[in-house]
Amino acid sequence: MRITVLTVPDCPNAPVVRERIAAVLDGEQAEVELIEVREEAEAARWQMTGSPTVLVDGVDPFAVAGAPASVSCRLYRDEEGRPGGAPSVEALRQAFAGTGADASAPVEECCVDDRGVLDPIGRAGRGRRAPDERGLRAVHQAVLRHFAATGDAPEPAGLAAAAATAGRTAADVLAELDREDFLTLDDDGRIRAAYPFSAVPTGHRLRLAGGVEAWAMCAIDALGVAAMLQQDVTVTSCDPVDGRPITVTLTDGTARWEPGEAVVFVGQRDQAGPAATVCCDALNFFADPTTAAAWARQHPEVHGRIISQAKALRTAEQTFGPLLAQD
């Protein structure tokens, strides 16, 4: 892990943040570099939005969407909402989690593959696109298109034609997709979820082009629908801690977050099972990093970390973007 601390000359909070970083590392090996930034152009090059700015492997974990580059002082808030000139020890611990600095809060296999790429819906890096064999992809894509067109899951009988292309019944193909965790079935063999969609209400509502409304399984799933369908999508959710509304408007490949400091927490529980039970309720939007950290403290059984808006969008696009591709 490489930690870069960007400060203006003689910043009074530079020694404070360095002491807090040392406290979090507590002897762990990490490269820590202090860089003085004097000019606005240099701040823009580093994407520094005030002094001090902390970068973890080149990324600002405390970034606020739309904040301009600046050589002025930077304000942070601790877990109780109190302002300060440097990130708190707990905030830094959350920022370093999953990079080796904090073994108590790693991003586990459900949420990352062996290259460190997040896979928040549980296939351990194997991806969400069903194989093009035994009718799996044909039926899976038919399910996803039905959700996109209606907001609801199709009945198994409506998938018979897609399954028949492989000489199988819809029930057989759906059962295999369920075993491989591309979707989940209820006790009657009906579709309960087909990531990223849910057939039952969740905390994440989608408004698709043309006015179709649907539910998403989790925050990452919700963000991935626009890339999967190649259309504009509005996501509405709320902070699980204080109930503040959160909206992400995805238009022409750009995202507008309200509030601007919203983040996503990605996590999983130490148990076997499909993503629907292991990961999905631990992948949530939060109105700001403070409430995300508070939720993590309230749920010690969940291992994970806070990720930025950019990381959440990139993960969602990589996970769900290919699902309806025809090649």
Rank of each mutant, 00 (worst) to 15 (best):
D119H: 09
V263T: 04
I3Q: 06
A91D: 06
R314N: 14
D242N: 15
A22D: 10
L75T: 01
P12W: 03
R77A: 02
A86P: 06
T290M: 13
P154Q: 04
P322Q: 06
V89Y: 01
P274G: 14
A124F: 06
I307Q: 05
T290Q: 11
G243Y: 15
A161V: 09
F197P: 11
C11A: 11
T319S: 12
I191R: 08
W215F: 15
D10T: 06
A69E: 00
D119Q: 05
L118A: 13
I246M: 07
A276Y: 01
G135Y: 06
L183N: 03
W295L: 11
A216N: 13
F265K: 02
A316I: 09
D102F: 02
V143K: 08
D232T: 05
A312N: 07
E28D: 06
D78R: 01
C218R: 12
S308N: 07
A65V: 03
A255C: 07
A149L: 05
A86R: 00
A101E: 02
R20E: 08
V241Y: 10
V5C: 04
L6E: 03
G253V: 10
D132M: 04
E39W: 04
G203I: 04
S70Y: 03
R129T: 13
T291A: 06
D114R: 08
V278P: 05
I21R: 11
P245V: 12
A103T: 13
Q318R: 15
A294L: 14
G158L: 14
Q47Y: 00
D172Q: 15
P106H: 11
V107R: 05
R2T: 08
D60W: 00
D57G: 08
T202Q: 09
V17P: 03
A153N: 04
P120K: 01
L75N: 00
E317D: 14
C110T: 06
D102H: 05
L283G: 06
A287P: 15
G260S: 08
A170R: 01
G211M: 13
P52Y: 00
A130H: 00
D119I: 03
E19C: 01
A194W: 05
P52K: 01
G84H: 00
V117E: 04
A142R: 00
R77D: 00
R190S: 09
P322L: 10
L136D: 04
L55W: 00
P156I: 10
D239M: 12
R20L: 11
D232M: 08
A194L: 11
S104D: 12
T290S: 12
R38D: 07
A262Y: 02
W46R: 01
T315R: 03
A157E: 10
D60H: 01
R20G: 13
E40L: 15
P201T: 14
A209M: 11
G127V: 10
E36P: 05
H299T: 10
R93H: 09
L283M: 09
A142Q: 00
R179N: 09
